[in-house]
Design a binder for these strands. Structure first.
Length: 136
DNA sequence: CGTTTGACTACGC
DNA sequence: CGCGTAGCCAAAC
């Protein structure tokens, strides 16, 4: 997906994309990853399962105080990826509910209602990004 | 400097 | 459906 020298720019790309997600909507690690062009050296098939994990890595290093809505990224199953009951999971859920995002009884978000469509075309072109894969 | 640890996902039971 | 797991490799210890 990216070589060590590119890690920082990859992280910043992730943070910038996450900043585009409006309140009340959610994205997934995989959806963010699907917008970032792969390295020319890397096999597309191989990066497929790799990329979302790096999005998680990038998000773990999210700088505080830069108003990045990290809480709006959840996993492909519609659930929060922090361990259930952990302080971080509860914080994320609280922030999302405050924005109007609902969780069902199993703790999942309905993508049909709350999935983010991705940034506008202009942003994609400006940043040289790919159209995101749509969330189910 | 070797080992462990992930804010993931697709896929097979 | 839900659950377990392989793949992956830079960070964090």
């Amino acid at each position: 997906m990216f070589n060590p020298p590119n890690a920082q720019s990859f992280f910043e790309t992730v943070w910038d994309i996450v900043r585009q997600i409006p309140a009340g909507k959610v994205s997934s690690y995989g959806q963010i990853a699907s917008m970032i062009p792969p390295d020319v050296d890397t096999e597309p098939t191989r990066m497929k399962r790799l990329a979302p994990r790096w999005v998680g890595t990038a998000l773990r290093k999210t700088p505080r105080g830069k108003s990045i809505p990290w809480q709006r990224v959840i996993n492909s199953g519609g659930a929060i990826s922090f361990p259930a009951g952990s302080p971080q999971a509860e914080e994320q859920r609280r922030l999302l509910e405050m924005e109007g995002v609902c969780f069902d009884q199993r703790g999942k978000v309905d993508f049909a209602r709350f999935a983010w469509d991705g940034p506008d075309q202009d942003y994609l072109r400006r940043k040289n990004l790919l159209p995101p894969r749509l969330l189910k």
